[in-house]
Amino acid sequence: MSEPRLAEQDLAALVSDWLTWDEAAELLGVTPAKARTMVRDHQLAAAVPALVPATGVKQGIPSLFIVDGEPVKGLPGLLTVLHDNGFDDRECIAWIFLDADLPGRPIDALRENRGAEVKRRAQALLL
């Protein structure tokens, strides 16, 4: 059996902690509207965690995307590369939280300031 495509990944299983728009805005020191703008501008990514959302389940932002009141270093550039490759936010989140042949997940590498290799691997997707 083949591995599910990125769009078919169960984000709720990949990402353990999600932030609401209000929680993300508070951590970032901005308004919820500004947090939404940051998602639109690919500084952050948001998605509904479940493939088949239950009633009332809303979009969220993975909590690991924010460190010390800012998006994780390297995340905006990585999201831009992934979006340029045709990924939507859901696919971006799945790729970032899956092991992409790195020693660990791309999100862990970003949080440990090892983003150059993650970005190189994302750029290789364009080939």
Rank of each mutant, 00 (worst) to 15 (best):
F65P: 01
G60Y: 04
Q43R: 15
I61P: 04
L28E: 03
K58S: 07
K73G: 00
D99Y: 06
D41A: 14
F97D: 09
V39L: 01
D108E: 13
G29C: 09
L78I: 13
A47G: 10
P32W: 00
I96S: 08
P71D: 04
V52S: 14
Q43P: 04
L51A: 08
G74D: 07
V48Q: 02
G86A: 11
D84F: 14
R40I: 09
E91L: 05
R105I: 10
G60H: 04
S63W: 00
V81C: 07
A33C: 00
R105H: 06
H42Q: 13
I96D: 03
W95D: 07
P103F: 00
E70H: 10
A45E: 02
V30F: 01
E23A: 14
A25Y: 06
L75S: 06
V81W: 00
A54F: 00
P103V: 15
L28Q: 02
L79R: 08
L44F: 11
H83W: 08
H83V: 15
V72F: 07
P32I: 05
P103C: 12
V72I: 06
H42L: 04
T37V: 10
F87T: 12
S63R: 15
G60P: 03
R90N: 14
V67D: 09
A94L: 13
P62T: 02
A33F: 03
W95M: 05
G56Q: 10
S63N: 06
T55D: 11
I66D: 04
A35W: 02
V67A: 07
T37S: 07
V67I: 13
A24R: 09
D84N: 14
D101S: 15
L79Q: 05
T37Q: 15
I107M: 15
A33Y: 05
D88H: 11
L98A: 08
R105E: 06
V81N: 07
M38D: 06
L28I: 08
A25R: 11
I107W: 05
D89K: 11
A25C: 08
A45R: 05
A50N: 10
V48D: 04
R36V: 11
A109S: 08
G86L: 14
P71F: 04
N85A: 15
W95Y: 15
L98D: 13
R36T: 14
P62G: 05
K58F: 15
V39Q: 01
D68C: 00
S63G: 08
V48T: 05
N85H: 14
G86Q: 08
P53F: 03
P32L: 00
V39P: 01
L110E: 11
H83S: 09
R40K: 14
A54C: 01
I93M: 03
L75T: 09
G74E: 07
L102W: 10
I66A: 01
L82C: 11
E23P: 01
F87M: 13
V48F: 10
C92E: 02
A46R: 12
P76E: 07
T80Q: 11
P49R: 07
D84L: 13
D108N: 11
Q43M: 12
V30W: 07
F87C: 14
C92W: 03
P49N: 05
R36N: 04
P53I: 09
L64R: 15
V39R: 03
